[in-house]
Amino acid sequence: MSEPLLRVSNLKKFFKVRRGFPNPETVIVRALDGISFIVQRGQAFALVGESGCGKSTAGRTILRLLEPDEGSIEFDGQDVVNADAKQMRALRKRAQIIFQDPFSSLNPRMRVGNALAEPLLVHGLMSKKEANERVRDLLEEVGLPRDAGIRFPHEFSGGQRQRLGIARALTLNPELIIADEPVSALDVSIQSQILTLLRDLQQRLNLSFIFISHDLGVVRYFCQVMAVMYLGKIIEKGPVPKIFDEPLHPYTVMLRDASPVPDPTARKAFERIEGEVPSAVNPPSGCHFHPRCPHVMDVCRKVYPEWIDVDAQRSVACHLYTEGRGGLPVAEAG
């Protein structure tokens, strides 16, 4: 296999938060607690989890929009964590981000054409005239009128603004796009338009994606590989259809079962879904998931499980898969 585009190893990001009244104390939130994964070229890699699991922090830390506290990030063989400002600028051309809310990520006082041309001029890649032409091509590429550049952000609808967000990410011909919940603020019909556009761009431009989402349906459609996160750690990773059909980790089972499916004949009682995500400030001892896990054992309360490679492609962090234990009961995985 060729060299992966992105290799993240043991990445950590902690936040110090002062909280409490009237005597505030400093606590540490372990937003990313040692995550590792690989993204191949042309692949859409999903980071999945509920709010507070650290998936957005992961996206931002990889681009060094947040400085990592520990671990390494290699982009095309190049060290990102220790890159200096000049190297970083070169790297930023190759990796871009699309945000969830395209309205707050566009300058409301700037004509969108100028906003889109800005990175081209900042990086000194083109003359103003060339940049304008490139902007018109980009607008067309994302399904907007070529002359839409003279308008202001407020003149666009939610779906159109997300198209602008995508155009902005595409300006510099990146190889990797980090898409942070790019469709979760959109209506169903607009969501499918944007997903179709992203998939088309992925295939045409051979883009790689880190796709951050809580919507399993969207992930199953768009991504080839996924990692499930819980309280700052990845608990399972593997190829997409397999994780859905035979999830290994009990939390993945819970997430899948909780995701509503548009089919009333598949209506199920949600009785196995218990508890809430605990605070990342004070995560439970041992395996973070043990208070909600239907298969909890003594060891789960004490020791955080090791990574176990179940086969060539799949791995999981769960005591059910250590030697001598057979994994999840078959009835549940199916």
Partner: peptide, 13 residues
């Protein structure tokens, strides 16, 4: 238009 978590969707309408 809804991508589903319980089955593969080749093309989304």
């Amino acid at each position: 238009s809804v991508p589903r978590s319980d089955r593969d969707t080749k093309t989304l309408y």
